[in-house]
Amino acid sequence: MPAMENGLTYKNAGVDIDAQDQALARIKELARATFTPGVLSEIGSFGGLFTLQPENPEAPVLVASADGVGTKLKVAQMAGKHHTVGEDLVNHCVNDILVQGARPLFFLDYLATGKLQPHVVVELVSGMARACQVHGCALLGGETAEMPGFYGPGEYDLAGFIVGLAFRDRLLDRNRVAAGDSLVALPSSGLHTNGYSLARKVFFETLKLTVDSYVPELACTVGEELLRVHRSYFAAVWPLVEAGLVKSAAHITGGGIPDNLPRALPPHLGAEIDLKSFDEPAVFRLIRQAGKVPEEDMRRTFNLGVGMILVVGEQHVGQVLSRLVLHGPGWIIGRVVEGAGVRFVGERVG
């Protein structure tokens, strides 16, 4: 397959992660000024923590998060298949509060479109309802906005808001992490819901493919690959959280391992990631090669086959790995080390 002469980056595909980080620094200041005594977390955590009883250490904690599906929606719209992106949305939000140590209580959605198409709405909500049922989470309500002139024909956007429950003594806490702790990875099911601006540019502009194009390297069509459902890790990880076997965890979303794993570590500690420990899925190899994407961009744009990383004390690694076998095995991807930042060692597999 042909490739571009000049390598693609996430920035020239339209997404500037560095600009987002700069904006977030200012947003943190604005949000912090609104904090009340019930707030237990800083902006930038995977989920926000709030308690109704700040003085009671045994009081339950509400954990909330909001997210969207991003330009994966474009692929769904191109394919005319809308039943999976609603599931993506719920699973993404469930994972974000799971890494705080919370189980989901209820979910709300926001759907905006140029012209409401009932069959599309039904498909979207059926996906959300299916995922909510799996997690014992109520689809409590939402908002549908019809905005002609703002969205083009067939276009829509989707966002979700989740609230979960945790207890302060069971919250996953990065301050419990120590140098020498193991990093246990769980595989992703594909791109999940991140990096689609760059992926779409590679598949549809560089390679000139369509959603129906069969790609031998992927053993499926482009649409089938790009619409794989964002995996939920709740069934695999929640029992480990309840058993006290996990210190901290990171959901590997936008920003990849370099930007997400440090959110699960104390500021003075970093991570060493062994590239030899896993085989990178074919879709990422194809994007890298066809788009001539620099390695730094690959690592900060995509999960590269790693959907979640658990920080586990050495004494519990055996138990964690044996329990994960029931849900699709995990593996030791690296360890916690002194000094901030993420370092990659070894040769990439595949």
Score class of each variant (00 low, 15 high):
Phe50Tyr: 08
Gln117Gly: 05
Glu42Met: 11
His92Asn: 07
Leu108Gln: 07
Pro294Asp: 14
Gly190Val: 12
Gly307Phe: 10
Glu280Pro: 06
Phe302Glu: 05
Thr9Met: 05
Leu191Tyr: 01
His83Tyr: 14
Pro258Lys: 05
His268Tyr: 04
Ser213Arg: 00
Val94Cys: 02
Val345Leu: 09
Gln289Ile: 01
Phe344Trp: 11
Glu143Pro: 04
Ala219Val: 02
Arg323Ile: 09
Thr253Lys: 11
Asn303Met: 08
Asp259Leu: 11
Leu183Gln: 14
Ala64Cys: 13
Phe278Met: 14
Lys81Asp: 13
Asp173Lys: 14
Phe107Ala: 06
Val99Trp: 09
Phe284Ala: 03
Val222Asp: 00
Leu240Thr: 10
Phe161Gly: 08
Gly141Met: 02
Asn6Gln: 06
Val215Tyr: 00
Asp67Phe: 00
Leu245Glu: 15
Lys81Cys: 11
Leu172Ala: 13
Pro118Asp: 05
Cys137Asn: 00
Ala178Trp: 09
Val211Cys: 06
Tyr10Glu: 07
Leu191Pro: 02
Gly48Pro: 04
Glu205Thr: 04
Glu42Asn: 12
Gly330Val: 15
Pro329Asn: 13
Ser277Thr: 15
Pro258His: 12
Asp279Thr: 12
Lys247Ala: 15
Thr301His: 03
Tyr10Arg: 14
Arg348Val: 05
Gly38Ala: 03
Val312Gly: 13
Lys115Asp: 10
Gly339Lys: 02
Ala31Tyr: 10
Ala19Leu: 13
Gly346Lys: 11
Leu108Asn: 01
Ala159Thr: 04
Leu226Ser: 07
Glu242Ser: 06
Leu158Thr: 01
Val349Ala: 11
Phe107Cys: 00
Asn194Val: 10
Asn6Lys: 09
Gly114His: 00
Ala271Trp: 12
Lys28Ser: 14
Tyr233Asp: 12
Lys115Leu: 10
Asp21Arg: 15
Arg231Gly: 09
Glu146Gly: 04
Gly142Pro: 01
